[in-house]
């Protein structure tokens, strides 16, 4: 097992719901039933705070921990421009086509959060 993934799985950063999130989204991985909920606090064009909850394998939950740690404090527009490959690069490990779905679940929920926020303002 990848020690960084294991460390984030056992001691996740940004774990738990936010008290007053600007936006909250939940999604499931249809291949295994895993689910991740992400809360974002958005202000001044930035992700001011982020939290997640869910049930899943070490890869999907560690990916949430690593991703939210990375994006907190960053401009929303920059995070919106992140690609799936950027997400996989954050994990810095070899991931096969089946586990990619685990690794990308939190990323897709995060992007859905930001899309919802954008639609809400337009």
């Amino acid at each position: 097992m990848n020690p960084v993934i294991l460390e984030h799985y056992k001691h996740p950063r940004r774990h738990g719901a936010l008290a007053a999130p600007t936006v909250r989204r939940r999604d499931v991985n249809p291949f295994c039933g895993d689910e991740v909920t992400i809360d974002l606090l958005l202000a001044n064009g930035r992700i001011e705070d982020a939290g997640f909850d869910g049930r899943g394998c070490s890869l999907s939950l560690a990916a949430a921990s690593i991703l939210l740690d990375n994006v907190t404090g960053r401009p929303i527009d920059a995070v919106r421009r992140m690609s799936s490959d950027d997400m996989l690069a954050l994990l810095d490990m070899e991931i096969g086509p089946i586990r990619r779905k685990c690794a990308l679940l939190p990323f897709s929920v995060l992007q859905a959060c930001l899309a919802e926020e954008k639609n809400g303002h337009e």
Binding site: M1, F31, C32, G33, D34, G56, C57, S58, R99, C102
Partner: peptide, 24 residues
């Protein structure tokens, strides 16, 4: 988690199925 289990078993050469087995 079953996925993690399957991954560790795979390192031991053991192939098992993990997931909802198309029976949600």
């Amino acid at each position: 988690h079953p996925h993690d289990l399957a991954a560790v078993l795979d390192q031991a050469g053991v192939a098992v199925r993990a997931g909802h087995h198309c029976a949600q």
